[in-house]
């Protein structure tokens, strides 16, 4: 009698994968009638934000609204564990490409053209780009994590051979082929259906709720499948879901 573990099985979605019928988040959204969001991104790795002027974006036909920090009814932060990820910054940007405001438009194009009209002024600050610079500037994410057993100082002193050195490794991008995606349908009665390419739907639900100042049961998060994540959608899907929900909340419209 053969054991079930020995049986060859193809991937549960294999036929869907090879025929293009397997659906991902951006495939599910409605083709029309949804607003699009486009970011206005920082050209500086680190800078003080001195002025945000969004008025001109509204002159672009098809622009519906611009999301700024003032639009957040709940908490303007999506950081998990350590709450250090501002959603819509007002004081400072801390990486090149950080989104400062988002323009919602009837079409991708309207949102993009609206974003080009937003004026943001910055006072660049010296960025900290390497671990060595960070150590020198005493700029740490958290307290030192110490793993200790026995008497290491004595052991090192008494050892016959002691080796010291430094090793550097660069970061590795997750490179999920399916980029981040989210879309939201509000029901007009304070509930939000959120479709998000996320590894952690319940956390996305909690974050969306707390950004919007809602209770968690007012948010439903669905993720049918992801086109890869590798950890990159563990917490980083949350800001995009929160922004889509925020725009849906502000406009009452369906958001992609």
């Amino acid at each position: 009698m053969s054991h079930p573990v020995e049986k060859r099985r193809s991937h549960e979605s294999a036929v869907g994968h090879v025929s293009g019928s397997a659906i991902y988040t951006d495939d599910q959204r409605l083709p029309a009638g949804m607003l699009s969001l486009h970011p206005v991104m920082s050209p500086h790795a680190r800078a003080k934000i001195t002025k945000i002027e969004v008025v001109a974006a509204y002159d672009v036909p098809g622009v519906v609204t611009v999301l700024t920090a003032e639009d957040v009814p709940g908490i303007n932060n999506t950081g998990v564990i350590v709450h250090d990820e501002i959603l819509l910054p007002t004081d400072e940007v801390s990486y090149w490409g950080q989104a400062v405001v988002w323009v919602a438009g009837e079409t991708d194009e309207a949102a993009r053209l609206g974003a080009e009209k937003v004026q943001i002024e910055y006072e660049p600050l010296p960025p900290i780009l390497t671990i060595k610079d960070a150590i020198e500037a005493d700029s740490f994410h958290n307290q030192p994590q110490v793993c200790r057993r026995g008497q290491p100082e004595t052991a090192l002193q008494e050892a016959e051979h002691t080796l010291t050195g430094e090793i550097e490794m660069n970061g590795q991008d997750h490179f999920y082929l399916e980029t981040h995606a989210s879309w939201v349908i509000p029901d007009g009665e304070g509930h939000y259906q959120v479709y998000s390419s996320t590894q952690h739907p319940s956390e996305t639900q909690a974050i969306v709720a707390h950004v919007l100042g809602l209770s968690v049961n007012q948010v439903v998060v669905t993720c049918l499948r992801m086109g890869g994540a590798f950890g990159g959608k563990e917490s980083q899907a949350n800001p995009f879901a929160a922004l889509a929900a925020l725009a849906a909340h502000k406009t009452g419209r369906r958001l992609a």
Binding site: S10, H11, S13, A14, G16, H17, V18, S19, E178, R225
Partner: peptide, 22 residues
């Protein structure tokens, strides 16, 4: 029914998340 190219990919396990598969 699946094209030979598609069946081959199903049989060998040529997809996991499936996003690159098309």
């Amino acid at each position: 029914s699946l094209h030979p190219v598609q069946s081959a990919m199903v049989e060998t396990g040529g997809s996991q998340c499936g996003y690159c598969t098309p």
